[in-house]
């Protein structure tokens, strides 16, 4: 087994090109190995000490989150909480305080779990990831990144270096809610994220909706035409579309029918929360605690 401690991005990219698996917080790799599911890779390159990879900077009117920005940072960063609240909602629910302190956005994104809490928010926010290799850098939308459970379209020599959040429309806001059986150390049973854009009169212009843990990858809900409708009507439409388009499985956490029902409930609540935020209502992060969604306060 080899373990490379990368002190620069170039070193990390060389190691990845040579077959090493990147590790930052280790909250997926180490837990999977300890749980006996997937042994640790033979070759690891630690990227958590690369200078600058853990910073949040402005980028084309939006934000650029370095790959090793932690969930704890995302959940509390003023610009993220203000403009990309749905992502902060997601990061604030990941694992425990310890998980959030070491777990990174880059790791979460590249682990490509259909149950990841940041996935649905990133989809509705129109996020992309920056993939670097010794050959150069390219940008891929998250919709194009996740291809199957645990599988991405990145090639094996590519390293995620950043997540890019584009500028959001005027009068818009996002929210992510999930169904949870307990309030910490939890994985989403189902979840839903929305970005709601309102017009000047408080009616809905558009709703983007993505769902967690009801399909092989994060699922973007399509054909949700709610322009001009009231928030309540948009929430109803989101509820119906989410339950309709979800393709959940039955497992230890829930049956398919319960998931199909509750993902609709989560979608409707996410629309109400995001619309409330877009209308200027102060709804703190995470929505699950503010509204008591999933686990009533």
């Amino acid at each position: 087994m080899t373990f490379t401690l990368a002190s620069s991005l170039e070193e990390a990219l060389d190691a990845v090109a040579a077959g090493a698996t990147p590790i930052a917080g280790g909250t997926d790799l180490v837990v999977a190995a300890r749980g006996g599911r997937t042994p640790l890779p033979e070759s690891l390159v630690a990227i958590d000490r690369i200078p600058g990879l853990d910073t949040v900077t402005t980028h084309e009117g939006g934000l650029r989150l370095g790959a090793t920005v932690s969930h704890a940072t995302i959940a509390s960063h003023p610009d993220i909480v203000r403009y990309f609240a749905g992502l902060a909602d997601g990061s604030a629910l990941v694992g425990s305080p310890a998980t959030r302190n070491v777990g990174t956005i880059g790791g979460n994104v590249m682990n490509a779990s259909p149950a990841m809490d940041t996935g649905a928010p990133l989809v509705v926010l129109g996020a992309s990831v920056e993939l670097a290799s010794v050959a150069g850098t390219r940008v891929v939308t998250v919709d194009d990144l996740w291809t199957a459970p645990g599988v991405t379209s990145a090639s094996s020599d590519e390293l995620c270096t950043a997540v890019l959040l584009p500028a959001q429309p005027e009068n818009s806001a996002s929210a992510y809610v999930r169904l949870e059986y307990r309030r910490a150390m939890e994985i989403a049973v189902v979840g839903a994220a929305t970005r709601v854009v309102l017009d000047g009169d408080g009616a809905v212009t558009s709703v983007d909706l993505a769902l967690t843990a009801v399909a092989p990858t994060i699922l973007r809900v399509t054909a949700l035409d709610v322009a001009g409708s009231s928030i309540a009507a948009a929430a109803d439409a989101a509820r119906e579309a989410a339950s309709m388009q979800a393709t959940p499985i039955s497992d230890i956490r829930a049956s398919d029918s319960y998931r199909r029902h509750t993902v609709g409930i989560m979608a409707g609540r996410a629309v109400e929360a995001a619309a409330g935020r877009a209308a200027g209502e102060q709804i703190s992060v995470p929505v699950n605690r503010a509204f008591g969604i999933g686990a009533p306060a």
């Binding site: 749980g35 425990s96 059986y181 307990r182 309030r183 910490a184 150390m185 939890e186 994985i187 230890i252 956490r253 686990a295």
Partner: peptide
């Protein structure tokens, strides 16, 4: 046993 692990054998946490 289907769930011999703490993620899916759900103990209560302090947050609960």
């Amino acid at each position: 046993q289907v769930n011999p692990a703490l993620l899916d054998y759900k103990l209560q946490t302090f947050a609960d």
